[in-house]
Design a protein around this nucleic acid. Structure first.
Lengths: 229, 229
DNA sequence: AGCTGTGAAGGCGTTCACAGCG
DNA sequence: CGCTGTGAACGCCTTCACAGCT
């Protein structure tokens, strides 16, 4: 969302990867890790695509935005490709994130096992409720909202996660941005407005289920044939 | 994902709404609820689009797939439009869902406040761990994996949520499908294979943060100007 | 011979701009 | 006159099909 365009610059360097491709690179990374665990050292685009759940042509096109890391007639070296993708998406370093709103969801996120192996480190937990401040969650002490800016500055955090109720989301987003955060993952069921230069991604748990419910309704409604005539 | 194509049939009935539109209908519903709370009875596509965070033209095109529920020169009746969208996405009834995997994330989901007002009812909690079976979480007693089929049948559940570790995801998906579930929301960091006719949506917490990290890296790399001469 | 990397084609989704109606 | 509803243009993404290496 936002961000420049231009897949492939004149000088040939692969800057400006399409959004759709960026969203799949972590999937490929996971598939490569799976192959490594299985002791596979080399694979074709077909094998890798199967593991990632995508079309092989799409996989090759995606990888072509990064460069030519395969060998024609052979395939891809699993470890080499894994490193190249990891480098491209910035996973050679760990990214510190701050979670704001340590209710059920915030607590679950702070304990989520999947982050550490994906270059994400939950570095700070923040909550507005004085009752929660000072308590320990997943080995971290919950900090007050008043100390948000200090925490963000101290640990040079650039990514914030909003796990508050919807009503607090905009206020939290404003304070995150004021503190210097430039990327936000928003779990709150509310739209947040941010200045240019700040990225927001939204995960809405209800909406995902509502979309499934729509398809369920359609499946159920095929025999009745209500429409027509 | 999957599902037929064909926005607008020959007989004029608005069957076959594009996926992209379906994904936004719940957003519009939420925006309409917000307007109702503010005492707004009627609104233009511009106002509603602002509340939903989309382009007004896109909003009107989306709504046009449902029918003509606005008044030219005036706008939309908030309550009327709300009802029409709710009916279209099947939110006039409540949908029972079963959550499998009652760890931190599953527990958080079972307690999530946002579901009930969006036509989603968490009807059953299932876990494979004998230690967890029988315990009470968010007012529900955790059921054994062995009783999954019985629970699904008894409550006529068609939507399942996977909140297990990645290693268990495929096994859980298989058993959900065998039990009669035809829509799955998968939070596990793993690809699950399902037969035709079953819908799967995937929410990957790590991947969302990895995408943000990629953009952060790019922002950070703008001054250094590594590429180009 | 085999598989990658990629131009070209096709399909969706978004946005524009205005006809049509209240 | 104003705002909806929508054909048409545009652009992004996907998929095909094959040229190009190994």
């Amino acid at each position: 969302m936002t961000i420049l365009r231009s897949p492939r610059l004149a000088d040939g360097s692969a800057r400006g990867i399409p959004d759709a491709t960026v969203a799949r690179l972590p999937v490929y990374l996971r598939a490569l890790n799976t192959l490594t665990e299985q002791g596979v050292a080399s694979c074709s685009s077909i094998e890798l695509a199967e593991n990632a759940g995508v079309n092989p042509a799409k996989l090759r096109k995606d990888l072509s935005y990064l460069g030519s890391y395969g060998t024609r007639g052979v395939g891809y070296d699993v470890e080499y490709l894994r490193y190249q993708i990891a480098r491209e998406i910035g996973q050679t370093q760990d990214w510190d994130v701050v979670i704001v709103g340590i209710g059920n969801l915030g607590s679950a996120l702070s304990a989520y096992q999947g982050f550490s192996t994906r270059g994400i480190r939950v570095a700070a937990l923040v909550d507005a409720d004085p009752q929660r401040v000072g308590t320990e969650v997943s080995g971290l002490t919950v900090t007050s909202m008043d100390d948000l800016a200090a925490v963000v500055a101290e640990r040079a955090i650039s990514i914030g996660v909003i796990a508050t109720p919807g009503t607090a989301a905009q206020e939290v987003a404003d304070r995150l941005v004021a503190a210097g955060v430039t990327s936000i993952l928003n779990f709150a069921p509310a739209l947040v407005q941010v200045p240019d230069g700040v990225d927001v991604r939204k995960v809405d748990l209800s909406i995902e289920l509502q979309i499934l419910a729509y398809h369920e309704q359609r499946k159920a409604g095929i025999e009745p044939k209500v429409s027509g005539i």
